[in-house]
């Protein structure tokens, strides 16, 4: 279970203070698929980064399985992230000089044991990337890039998947593949927190919330 408890985050830029999140609270159950909508700049991405242990909130707590992740040291939080959280971003963040197979294996850098090869191939195949194993990101379409990023996030079967506008650059076919993958992951007990503008996501999400201004 994820419990986002009364978090606030503000940014200061050129003497202007922007309140990205203001006393925001949210609870997600295990296996829940939550879609978050809202206008640009409303704090959706900030919420995702805070929930993933990457951005310290100015106030509030993030409890994942009753553990406040911001009570952990940076090193321990990194280990926690490696074990429990998967990230997917709109801009994919694939490593340009690695092949699809290698990009999917990147989380292994933070893990103590490798995922068996057959499981990696199964995951890649399930996302329709079998023919692209040895291709670099520059040789992939937007959909293939996003599917590669999704495979990377799911490799170690994390408890939580945090997805930020992952369908924003995709055609309808790829949106279907990606969304079905998220639904499938959720159906198998994974918790999904999806930030999106795509109203079609509501169809597969268990719950939808709208953030107006943090």
């Amino acid at each position: 279970m994820i419990y986002i408890d009364n978090i606030s985050k503000k940014y200061t830029k050129e003497n202007k203070t922007i309140h990205a999140l203001d006393n925001f609270s949210l609870t997600l159950e295990k296996g829940e698929f939550l879609a978050i909508h809202g206008p640009s700049g409303c704090g959706k991405t900030t919420l995702l980064l805070i929930a993933g242990g990457l951005l310290h909130p100015d106030q509030g707590r993030i409890l994942i399985d009753s553990e406040n992740i911001y009570d952990l040291s940076a090193e321990k939080r990194a280990v926690f992230r490696a074990k429990n959280i998967g990230f997917v971003f709109q801009q994919y963040h694939l490593i340009p000089y690695l092949t699809v197979l290698e990009n999917v294996q990147v989380p292994a850098l933070a893990q103590k044991k490798d995922v068996p090869e057959n499981e990696i191939y199964e995951l890649i195949e399930s996302l329709g990337l079998k023919e692209r194993l040895q291709h670099t990101p520059a040789e992939l379409s937007a959909g293939e890039k996003q599917r590669t990023a999704l495979a990377r996030a799911l490799l170690y079967n994390p408890k939580i998947l945090l997805a930020d506008e992952i369908t924003g650059n995709l055609d309808q076919g790829n949106v279907e593949i990606v969304m079905n993958c998220l639904a499938d992951y959720s159906a198998h007990g994974g918790t999904v927190l999806l930030v999106t503008h795509d109203k079609n996501a509501n169809r597969l999400a268990h719950r939808t919330i709208y953030i107006e201004k943090g």
């Binding site: 990230f87 801009q91 933070a110």
Partner: peptide
């Protein structure tokens, strides 16, 4: 930068 960002996101430690 982006590469480092994603490596940190997947849990790669600072010393790595």
């Amino acid at each position: 930068k982006s590469e480092i960002g994603i490596l940190r996101a997947v849990g790669v430690k600072e010393k790595s």
